[in-house]
């Protein structure tokens, strides 16, 4: 599909907005529908779209495998790290009230970082699965 002009132009136009929408869903999750899981999937979908139009190798150059694998673990670590941070500040595991002097702000901060963790892991896993499947097909074509 790399030579299809319409797809290339429309893709180039749309992908920034898909990624922006993912970020919006992420940070607006407190107020409207959305949250880490949806944001992660939409972000991954944007990159998958890019990979389909411009080829897997091009996408891998932008979002390399190492980064994706790091994201996989980093998200869970951030999530658990928020819990441990609560422990250090004198609360229970995953207790957000102690994260700030104002307990309500502490909740906001806790939810924010937790959602970031979820988004990073989900995005990483989706991309990794896609890369794995797509690259297997490629290798068999080469053979």
């Amino acid at each position: 599909m790399e030579n299809n002009l319409v797809l290339r132009v429309v893709g180039k136009l749309l992908i920034p907005f898909i990624l922006l929408f993912a970020v919006y869903v992420q940070f607006h999750g407190d107020f409207g529908p959305g949250g880490g899981f949806q944001a992660g999937v939409i972000f991954a979908a944007g990159i998958v779209f890019y990979a389909i139009i411009f080829g897997l190798d091009q996408a891998r150059r932008i979002v390399p495998d190492r980064l994706v694998e790091t994201m996989l673990a980093l998200g869970v670590l951030i999530y658990a790290g928020v819990g441990v941070a609560g422990l250090f500040l004198g609360g229970n595991f995953l207790d957000y009230f102690v994260l700030d002097r104002n307990p309500v702000h502490g909740q906001h901060r806790g939810i924010f970082w937790v959602e970031v963790g979820v988004a990073i892991t989900v995005c990483g896993v989706m991309l990794k699965i896609f890369y794995m499947f797509a690259s297997r097909g490629q290798r068999e074509e080469d053979a």
Partner: peptide, 10 residues
């Protein structure tokens, strides 16, 4: 009590 408008997220 957590004061997040989207209850699902809270």
């Amino acid at each position: 009590e957590v004061d997040v408008p989207n209850v699902v997220t809270a």
